[in-house]
Design a protein around this nucleic acid. Sequence first.
DNA 1: CTCAAACGCTGGGTTGCGAG
DNA 2: CTCGCAACCCAGCGTTTGAG
Length: 432
Amino acid sequence: MDSTGVQGIGEMIRKVRKEKGWRLEDLADEQISIATISNIERGFAHVKPEKTHYLIQKLKIDPARLPRLMMKEQQDLKELEFELKSLQLLRDTGDAALALEHLNRLKLEASHPYAAMFHYLKGKCYLSLRKWKEAEKFFHQAIRFSHHHEHAYSKKSNIKAVSFIELGLCAFFQNDLVQAIRYTDRGWDVYEHDGERSYAWWLLHINKAVYYERLGQLAESMQVIQKAWEGVHQTEKKDIVITFYYLRSEILRRSGVYDEAVTFAIKGLELARLNGHTPLLFDLWTVLGSTYMAKEDWFKAERCFNHALRLKDRLFDDPMVECKIITAFARLGKLYTQQKKWEQAGRVIREAIATGEKYEDAPRLTYALQVMGDYYQVQGRMEEGIPYYERALALARKYNYKKRACSTLIRLPDYWRDTNREELLAYLETIS
DNA sequence: CTCAAACGCTGGGTTGCGAG
DNA sequence: CTCGCAACCCAGCGTTTGAG
């Protein structure tokens, strides 16, 4: 009997037991203990076949019916697999609420072979619905159940690794970047190279690079990207390759290496165009525009931002993608401010702030608020700008964005005079 | 007085480890 | 190598407590 067979029997035994409403305790006797029954049902090897046969007897299962029951079990499993796959697709295409509704109708035991997958999917639905805490709960469950039944399949599912990736995202969306990196590292540790979901390996790199980049640790971020650069070109998943181009360009831009940033952004755009990947086109136009802005090439910069924002309506209804428009709006606002196009500037910055508030995206919102402050300051309307600076500062302090806090403070001369100096100096101590 | 967070209990199940 | 004890885990409850 191979391990798959043992597995199948275990599930069938559990099903029959549950149907009869029996607990493990009800089946245990001096011949067989609770622990052993549990081991048999979970398909755990190292149990003598005699014990399994004894259990089958005790459940009054006709041995002649065994093969048919097993077949039925397999078939049910196949059907469930299809159901889960279709619900995953439903979520991926933007209908998380409906997918969740269907998932909630299914009842899977913790020991079910698809329990990990099931909980992972539920987590992803909650993530799409921006219910971080709920999502976290289910990803932890998925991790807990992930080692069950792994041995039954030739390939490792890598559910554990992808769950850690998603937990990292949960932390990221709650503005806890340090925790996000911690989760990603754990995903890194448990990732199995010859398993399924090989895209997860690249996702681990991408996410880690993004988190470092957000923390302002550009060298670490670039290191992650560069170490995987050669390898990633082997994958047939073009969106991942394009994301690498985008990230490389973004890190170079933030490091002040503008010409190289432009080169990588344009290469990325070329790839994204060939593969028709709209969300990434948006990112690439934004980074390219920002780079041209830094190079003071206002004409090209405006072109890029407008290209980006023209894609706005074609972005999927996905909060992770949608909140990116905050940066594009804010940068365009900054551009218009520099060109003294006040009316246009005010409009796009307000839009940036509104979107930032909608998605509670603290880092991007902080930036947008700062841009709004600058907008008023350069017009000599400092008293109108101060509230925006103060909000930016409060957010930056709350989530400990050190650089952003400093750059906001520099713009706030009145703040030094009027508010609690000592508290502020103490704060500066902590970030220096 | 209400309501929700915290607490503790319980049932059902899993797991580490040592004995045979 | 197998098995089972006992410790452990965890979800689902009822109860307590404390803030508004």
